[in-house]
Design a protein around this nucleic acid. Structure first.
Lengths: 77, 77
DNA sequence: CAAATAAATTCCCGATAGGGAATAATACAA
DNA sequence: TTGTATTATTCCCTATCGGGAATTTATTTG
């Protein structure tokens, strides 16, 4: 398990966001079940999200990131 | 109409991303129809997205942002 | 103002998101 | 190994996404 601080990074795909969610959930010692409870969603959604499913709903993803303390910023490329 | 450069900003919701898409699409003088064509999607999706619909699919949103030259970065809050 | 262009809304409808619950698979410890 | 906890997958199911096209509404232009 990598415990270093992530400068997190660029989100280009659902896979990227899935990795971030998985990492930050574990850093906070939450199980998928617990995170689903906090987010008032199902465990299926958390599993799908962490596994990079691209068709997850945008607002649900943002809510999870917010719960985990991850901020999302837009910049010009 | 605000034409200043946006330091873009934090994305907390679908409404935020909708505003960014609308703004950057217009900055590049694209119509919704043209952007939909570039993204191989429908105009309904572009309209929904720009109007802040939260249930749009994550990967579709990311693809639109990429087309518009908007990078998305994750940071710790 | 009217005309032209763009955007939003509506309809039909096939595809699928995602909830809950059960099961299977995987990881981890003792 | 066996047991335990966690995660992934499957099923059933309802709700809705989103494409395409048509229409309505809004915006821009002359």
């Amino acid at each position: 398990m990598n415990r270093e601080i992530l400068p997190i990074g660029s989100i280009k795909s659902a896979k990227d966001v899935g990795e971030i969610v998985s990492r930050y959930r574990k850093m906070q010692e939450l199980t998928q079940v617990e995170l689903a409870g906090l987010a008032q969603t199902g465990t299926r959604f958390i599993s799908d999200l962490e596994n990079g499913k691209g068709t997850v709903q945008f607002d649900k993803v943002m809510h999870i990131l917010d719960l985990l303390g991850v901020e999302v910023v837009a910049k010009e490329r």
